[in-house]
Amino acid sequence: MTVTAQAVRRDAVKAPRRRGGGIAPPWLFAVPALLIYALVVLYPAFSGAGSAFTDWSGVGAQRSFVGLDNFQELFHDDQALGALRNTLLLTVAIVVVQNGIGLLLALGVHTGIKSRMVLRVIFFAPVVVSPVMVSFLWKYVYNPAPDAGLNAALGAIGLGGLRQDWLGNPSIALWSVAFTVIWQCAGYSMVIFLAGLEGVPAELHESAMVDGAGTVARFRHITWPLLAPAVTINLMLSTVGGLTLFTQIIAMTNGGPGYATDTLSTVLYKQAFVFGKFGYSTAVALVLAIFVAAVSFIQIGYLRSRETAA
């Protein structure tokens, strides 16, 4: 049955090519789209990349070619290296916790509980709010005053000793930002996992139950392997999102206190618009783009092989 369905699909794809001797090759149809892509994506990207080899300030016409100086400076820049460390920490925290919570939420609302549709909407709701609005909301929640926001709530339930300067303490600020991102995006991961769960055939679970498999065994041997595509997509999206995180940081901490929450994205922004070093900023952007692409390729290669194995 499976083989037949795949064969039919392959035939359906190949048929027009075999019969279409008089029709122009299909790639011609892609030309308009490719032209637009080249104009609005490739040309600006490559012309911008050229700035990485200059000392352009970002305004005016003065610029000189400086070769690889910007890249040399980047790899000796304590601020950039600190930002790389923060970026990686944030990414790991977001990927692990956001997807963990997303999976638990998806499993929770995939059950037969009565309010599951309402819960799905509630958990997904933060995703459709602008990240800037979410950041300002959480900035209010993180107010350091003992009688405001989260600190007031902790005091009210007798946990006053846990009150913190959530965004002002350099040791905590990064995790406060990470929590905000996870709060907003866990619903997004949930939706993707939920779609994956809906594709798991109920009869497999029923068969396993007949064979005496418990909830954990059925999750481990049936649900988890069949969720592989959803895991791939979620890990990819959250990794890229974590590596390029910008809005929430600028809105909540502006990279501070000090450099405690600076990421590569905020560093490149500050270098371009605050320090007036557009050339150097472009070098940071180039390195970030290559880094994100490399991580993504490695990750997708591994996850795809995992899907096949499953």
Partner: peptide, 19 residues
């Protein structure tokens, strides 16, 4: 099994697209 997975992925893409 493969068919099940392709259905799952299509559904997945629909939802991702919507999101």
């Amino acid at each position: 099994m493969a068919l099940d997975r392709s259905v799952s992925r299509r559904r997945l893409l629909q939802l991702v697209g919507g999101a």
